[in-house]
């Protein structure tokens, strides 16, 4: 994938399939330590131990439409080629956690990409069914966004309304710009 944001979106799609109603996305850009950490955790159906082991194999999928399952293995490969690490932890009935660690300055590391458009797009199509808790750290600065907070203000109006989605997208863009000290 051209952007790490697209990997994140792809993993969030897994959470939908696992019937999660909460996804936590945590991103830490630690420039001093030259590390980028991405964690995605859901409260979906989780996997059995055997399945959690198999799922990183690109020739294994739970679906019947085709015989390969690429999402997790692609994300793992992206981390591994950047002197990074990748962990998958899943508990049946409780949820799944994915963690990818990258050497921040590695030449092969894809850019994080357009996180605001990615997350706003996800909320536009799934926001009524699922909540998103997003935390982004850039060195010592932190930005937090939570759809539950937004829904509280909306008092019944759908979070998928286009004008609300645009507001969320700008809110995310602004928040990220702020913690990165003005850069996008």
């Amino acid at each position: 994938m051209r952007e790490l944001a697209l990997h994140i979106l792809d993993i969030m799609e897994n959470s939908l399939i696992a019937d999660a109603d909460l996804i936590k996305v945590f991103i830490k850009e630690d420039i001093k330590a030259d590390r980028l950490i991405i964690k995605i955790a859901d409260n979906g159906s989780g996997m059995e131990e055997k399945q959690a082991k198999e799922v990183l194999n690109p020739f294994v999928t739970q679906r019947t439409e085709r015989e390969v399952g690429l999402g997790l293995s692609l994300f793992q490969a992206a981390a591994k080629r950047c002197e990074g690490d990748f962990n998958l932890a899943s508990v049946l009935g409780e949820g799944t956690k994915v963690e990818a660690i990258f050497k921040y300055s590695h030449l092969d590391r894809a850019p994080l990409g357009d996180l605001a458009a990615t997350l706003a797009g996800f909320i536009a199509t799934n926001g009524d069914e699922i909540d998103l808790n997003y935390e982004h750290i850039y060195n010592d600065a932190k930005f937090i966004f939570n759809t539950k907070e937004v829904k509280k203000e909306l008092t019944g109006l759908s979070i998928t309304n286009l004008k609300i989605i645009n507001w969320i997208k700008s809110y995310l863009e602004e928040g990220l710009r702020e913690i990165r000290g003005g850069e996008v």
């Binding site: 994938m1 697209l6 979106l9 792809d10 799609e13 399952g69 690429l70 999402g71 692609l74 458009a117 990615t118 797009g121 536009a124 199509t125 286009l162 004008k163 989605i165 645009n166």
Partner: peptide, 25 residues
């Protein structure tokens, strides 16, 4: 309805979704 599997995302589904939202608005 937008196809958002790994295949869709890799082929540009996020951009298609953004274009749909922009055009509807």
């Amino acid at each position: 309805i937008i196809g958002m599997g790994t295949c869709g995302i890799a082929a540009g589904a996020r951009e298609i979704l953004q274009a749909v939202l922009a055009e509807l608005e």
